[in-house]
């Protein structure tokens, strides 16, 4: 689904990392590396918000550069670390926003859209929160809502930038397990960056590792390999 060729991600004059070639299909992939190595920049490049890189990235056979912003929104969804909502939206309202790329200019939603929201909410076990005010939820609940939103966006690829950063240890574990279930059920490709490597072996289908300005892909013994890579 996602193909990389001779990639070099830069920021200004500084090169962050290189990636020779890679092809990713479905599954849950972790993105690991030290702070500042380029994880967020990588995600932003895929979202076409960062254009300073060399090489080709193709998505389902089409060059990333060929996609318009609105087309890309039907292919890639994102979940960030924090959400600042302006307004007193309910959880349902926020999740519904995921349907925006599929709506016309008048942004009307259909019955199917509503049904989709209910289904995903139940899947993530937040169905009971649908009418609650988003602002009043805990950080963990908010992240679940944002993931629901990303799912409802119905894209083959979902990117997540440290989704568990502000969650406590219990919610963090629950989150990764949930992501695995989602990846398995929906056949999507989910890439999420994280610093918590202890859960990776049981849940992930692989990991992208950035060390020494180089991105590599590992598929087994994730924790051990990562530890070795950083001399831990």
């Amino acid at each position: 689904m996602l193909k990389f060729n001779n990639i070099e991600i830069n920021v200004g004059s500084r090169r962050l990392f290189r990636l020779d070639s890679l092809e990713l299909e479905r599954g849950l992939i972790a993105l690991v590396g030290r702070n500042g190595c380029g994880k967020s920049t990588f995600i932003r490049s895929l979202l076409k918000e960062h254009g300073d890189y060399k090489g080709n990235i193709t998505l389902n056979g089409r060059l990333l550069t060929d996609f318009s912003k609105s087309e890309l929104a039907t292919q890639i969804a994102v979940v960030y670390t924090r959400t600042e909502l302006f307004g007193n939206h309910s959880v349902r309202d926020v999740i519904l926003l995921g349907r925006l790329p599929h709506q016309g200019i008048l942004s009307r939603f259909s019955k199917e859209d509503l049904g989709s929201v209910e289904k995903v909410a139940n899947q993530l076990e937040i169905g009971h929160l649908l009418d609650a005010a988003f602002q009043r939820l805990s950080d963990g609940e908010k992240q679940l809502v944002m993931i629901a939103r990303a799912l409802v966006q119905d894209t083959p690829l979902i990117l997540m930038d440290e989704p568990g950063a502000y969650l406590d240890l219990v919610n963090r574990v629950k989150l990764v397990r949930l992501l695995k279930d989602v990846a398995d059920d929906s056949q999507k490709l989910i890439i999420f960056s994280t610093h918590h490597i202890d859960l990776l072996d049981q849940n992930c289908d692989g990991a992208l590792l950035i060390t020494n300005e180089q991105m590599s892909f590992i598929q087994a013994d994730l924790q051990t390999q990562i530890k070795n890579a950083f001399n831990l």
Partner: peptide, 14 residues
């Protein structure tokens, strides 16, 4: 509609 989530999310929504 999208900007209530901030510019980053709005961009990702197309």
């Amino acid at each position: 509609n999208a900007l209530v989530l901030g510019t980053s999310y709005a961009g990702s929504l197309g």
